[in-house]
Design a protein around this nucleic acid. Structure first.
Lengths: 363, 363
DNA sequence: CTTCGTTACTTAACCGGTTCGGCTTATCAG
DNA sequence: CTGATAAGCCGAACCGGTTAAGTAACGAAG
């Protein structure tokens, strides 16, 4: 242990509200306020505020002088003060109703958050991220945030069929962008990727390879994305006259493995399996190989959400790829649009692209 | 698209500052303030504040009455107002200086964030999460947060050797808990896992299986954790009289695969490889299998940061496992301790546990 | 030369809490 | 009965901004 060391320095680090002590130690705490700038410029507080916010009401000369002094003093607006008076928090909220465990397993989220962040940080807005257990807690979080005026808007992910969060957000008047198909968004602003087209591409792909019996290892049916894919899968399979089965899971590796074992026991046995995420696909891959079957010779695999996982397995996995980071950025931009007064719209971000890799082979 | 729908409802959702309009639509925006409670209770604002904050200065009878009314009115404290006057933000900061891409690949972070969140949400504190490109931006973020009084404290991850962030945090007087070995923390409060013991366990394991030539695929040497492991690896290898080589990478799957190819070309060829994260281990596994070598018959693999990945590959991977979620929670608790005035201390959270799976076999 | 309208500010209220000094009133020792 | 002490509460300042309303100066129009 290293509890020792320089006592004085340690005290500085550990101190909580001992600002005077901190200052004595030479810490330059930026207590620069608008009032100080006003004093130095010989104008009123209000004028400084107008100048700093690029609003009319001051001459260009004064504005320049104020900006110069503010820069010299390294003035930074106090978020709380600004929020209190302007009723803007410059913070956006994202609630993830998943277990911490799921979040570890699903690389998807971190990438999405990264994309959201990239937009926020350049405008120096903040992200309030909350991880909760279920939708009820998520709704409770929205209520709290709305009451506290904590966030200016929220991003809603994992859209459900007849999503209970939508009426709540409407009621609260909390600006929001939903991540999911317009068919699920009930007229709220949303950003989506065309899962129907993607699923169709996947089925066309396996059919063109000669596969006639296929399986789909899907996520929970209450998830809107899964539901959309279910529809598309049915439609495409019928059109192509394929024998098609579906197994629903909770997205976890364990259930993905179990479901894979199940579909492999079906008669006739499917020769192609399409997974709803890459984690289950990798888990399925291991199960299939452990059973002594070869990929792609015996079975063709297609994954969704092409993360690096799909590229590091052996064989590499054919996958429906989309740019999760870009998706997050797009969603955040649309939320900013909504805040700027844009009419609620559905924005198609992209159609997942089918990347054909080693796990695909003709039957 | 679904721009249509109920115009009135849509307007409600899309409105930004049109509170009056929102109210007309029956939205009950909680504008309950302390003043309103004071009015209803027939006491002053100050008394209500004391009552609500469990501070002396009011009788138990008054306190009870105030609490009752506050509950009835569903009063929620306005964060900005509280922050402005009390100079506490009840928000903690976490900066991740990694590319969004890395964050996708490394399941570690999301789990850690989940653990941090679990502590925060039960105390209804908030987490400010920022993803930046490098340490310079990270330091800039700390400066900004300190100036804005945006956070009450920060969690610092990915500790480096002679970490430049430490003097900055000291200077700013920003309460912090570092995640990493006390040897790197320079007397600041820190939480660590015993990587030395873990690495020793890993080498003892492969040595006991009869392996005499081993390799280590490590992360970047400037990372403190990697450095600690480097030391431990050297010491243990010398003690056990093993032929040991090290390849440093950037933690990515690509470089993990490349490094694996490199060490396999070495003469004598190592019969056991220890990876610094599980992503590289999985990538290495694929490379080895693609080269026609068998695991574990030809080569024994050991991974670090046992995520679900290690359990879904075929064969499953021996790994140094630790509870990332719990780690995050522990770190957050220690940060709260620091805020409460605790002396800077080094806390050992745990020693990663070696879980022996199918990728281990005697030579 | 008035009148009107701008422009460039100033003043002061306000956001919703926290906190400090001071005023009552009850309690109690002397 | 008096004086000291403390509990309970009030009023007001304060945190650091935003912004509506008011004012002085000035040029242009009538």
């Amino acid at each position: 242990m290293t509890e020792g060391g320089n006592g004085a320095t340690l005290k500085g680090a550990g101190s909580t509200v001992s600002d005077p002590a901190a200052r004595e130690e030479g810490v330059v705490v930026s207590r620069v306020t608008i009032k100080e700038i006003a004093r130095r410029c010989g104008v009123s507080q209000g004028a400084v505020s107008y100048a700093l916010n690029n609003q009319p009401g001051v001459s260009e000369a004064t504005r320049a002088r104020v900006l110069k002094v503010a820069a010299e003093l390294e003035w930074v607006p106090n978020r709380a003060a600004r929020q209190l008076s302007a009723a803007r928090s410059e913070t956006f909220g994202l609630v993830l109703a998943r277990s911490a465990q799921t979040l570890i397993e699903e690389p998807y989220f971190m990438g999405f958050v990264g994309g959201v962040e990239s937009v926020l940080s350049e405008k120096s807005f903040a992200l309030a991220l909350q991880v909760v257990a279920d939708l009820d807690e998520e709704v409770a979080t929205y209520r709290k945030w709305a009451a506290e005026r904590r966030v200016d808007g929220v991003i809603v992910v994992d859209l459900r069929v007849a999503d209970p969060r939508i009426p709540v957000l409407r009621k609260l008047g909390l600006p929001a962008v939903l991540v999911g198909d317009p068919a699920l968004a009930d007229g709220m602003p949303c950003v989506w990727t065309d899962a129907t087209a993607a699923m169709t591409a996947a089925l066309d792909h396996v059919e063109s390879l000669g596969h006639r019996v296929i399986a789909r290892i899907a996520g929970p049916p209450e998830f809107g994305d899964v539901w959309i894919r279910d529809q598309a899968y049915d439609v495409a399979a019928r059109r192509l006259a394929l024998t098609a089965m579906v197994h629903h899971t909770d997205f976890s590796a364990t259930q993905g493995a179990d479901a894979t074992r199940d579909v492999l026991a079906a008669i006739p046995r499917p020769t192609a399996i399409i997974y709803d995420n890459d984690l289950m696909a990798v888990a399925g891959l291991a199960v299939i190989q452990a059973l002594g079957l070869r990929i792609p010779d015996d079975i063709t695999l297609v994954a969704w959400d092409d993360s690096p996982l799909c590229r590091i397995t052996h064989p590499t996995l054919t996958a429906l790829s989309h740019n999760v980071v870009g998706y997050g950025a797009e969603v955040m931009h649309r939320l900013l649009d909504v805040l700027a007064g844009a009419q609620p719209q559905a924005h198609l971000y992209s159609t997942p692209l089918l990347l054909i890799r080693e796990s695909s082979a003709p039957r």
